[in-house]
Amino acid sequence: MNFRNIVTRKIMSSALLLTLAGTSPVLAAGDAKGLPQLDITTWPNQLFWLVVTFGIGYVIMSRFITPRIGGVLEQRGKTIQNDLTRAKEAEAEAQEMKAEYEASLDEARAKGAEAASKAMSEAKESADTAEAALTAKLAKKTKAAETKLAKIRDEALASINDVASEVTQDAVMAVTGMKVTKAEATKSVSKLAKAGAGQEA
């Protein structure tokens, strides 16, 4: 409570009032009635009208005006709050959608990679199978060729013995004039061939 301030103000106000009250008769040029405000006969009437008008004013303001303005302001605050909440919700929704989209994108990518690797392994497998089949086929062919070759060789070898025994018969006949039976020639040739083969081995 600033006492000095109040007293100063009071003194100043009073001084002003007194000055004006004091000078007013002078300014009024002979009219010595003074300030109309200080005529107390008008006071009761003014008090009555003040009470009536201020009272009615208070009722109007408190019943109609302030609730109305307060209501509008409150409504505006609510609207702004609602809009903010809605915006926040929309933002969260957008974030969620983005995350979903990214997840589906990742999934698609993973699926793609999986499919690619699967196709690759399948292709490799089928290539392997084909290769194996080819190898087997080739091996079979080789074996058949080898068998054929061996047979031909054996036949050739067998005919060589025959030829050799005939040559032997002829050679013995020519050299000694002795007739050698085919059986004997064959026997000796195969004996020699065996020995040769053994030597070779």
Binding site: F48, T53, F54, G57, I60, M61, I65, R68, I69, V72
Partner: peptide
């Protein structure tokens, strides 16, 4: 309760302020 210039302007103060605030807030 004679009606004076003082009474008139007290009435006007209430009337004008109420009317202003009422009609200004009419659009709400």
């Amino acid at each position: 309760i004679q009606f004076t210039n003082s009474s008139l302007f007290m009435v006007l103060a209430v009337l004008v302020s109420s009317a202003f605030l009422y009609f200004a807030m009419a659009p709400a």
